[in-house]
């Protein structure tokens, strides 16, 4: 993991570049970001200052990160069928989640961080639900005879008005159904438009 640049503007710029270059191989992307970073540092040393004006001037001359990434290779972000399938399956519970996670992981349209965030959004409620079942035991619910469930669950559990689910569990269950679509929306928002293959100088 590269070290974060101490200057906030530069760090933001490099992050944008990294996202835009998501379609390059990891080695090539890391190298590109390192080269641009060296360039910025050289430029700031030359300017003899690290104030905002100096930073903005160097970044302005470099041009938009998206343009640099576009010059480096095929646009990473053209959402192909793989990304579409990944987002649709991720929105479907259970089997869809598994397939969705595999497809998201296989895609080159997202950065590692975007993949982790997307997958985490999709699966977090389900994981919480699974953990709560493990903690409480699978036999919990209103139809459980005897007191084991009563001892471990909040009292709403036992009136059975919501089929054995308390409000918290209900939220988590509903959440796990909505999480997939939310993750799909997040991931689609991270897909960038295919950048124009503009030349070195766009007059």
């Amino acid at each position: 993991m590269r070290q974060k640049h101490p200057n906030k503007l530069v760090a933001e710029y490099l992050n944008r570049l990294e996202s835009a270059a998501a379609g390059l191989g990891r080695g090539r992307r890391t190298e590109l970001v390192a080269e641009i970073r060296e360039h910025v540092d050289d430029g700031l040393r030359e300017a003899g200052a690290v104030d905002e004006v100096a930073v903005r001037n160097v970044l302005e001359r470099l041009g938009p990160p998206e343009e640099i990434a576009a010059a480096a290779g095929p646009p990473p972000t053209r959402a192909g069928r793989l990304e579409l399938a990944a987002m649709i399956t991720l929105a479907l519970p259970f089997v869809g989640w598994i397939i969705g996670v595999v497809l998201v992981a296989a895609s080159r349209a997202w950065t590692g961080r975007e993949k982790v965030v997307g997958i985490a959004i999709a699966l977090l409620p389900a994981v919480i639900l699974a953990l709560s079942f493990v903690a409480v035991g699978p036999s919990s619910g209103a139809d459980t005879p005897g007191g084991t469930a009563v001892a471990t669950l909040p009292e709403e559990e036992v009136d059975g008005s919501s089929g054995g689910l308390g409000p918290i569990e209900l939220v988590v269950v509903l959440g796990s159904f909505f999480a997939g679509p939310v993750a799909a929306v997040y991931l689609s928002s991270r897909l960038r438009r295919p950048p124009e293959r503009t030349g070195l100088a766009s007059a």
Binding site: L32, R61, G63, E67, A72, L200, A201, A203
Partner: peptide, 19 residues
């Protein structure tokens, strides 16, 4: 390169070319 008029507007795009 960028000192040459009209040749390059975005300096950053030179790096992919160098690669």
């Amino acid at each position: 390169l960028s000192e040459v008029d009209g040749l390059v507007t975005s300096e950053g795009t030179i790096y992919p070319l160098l690669t």
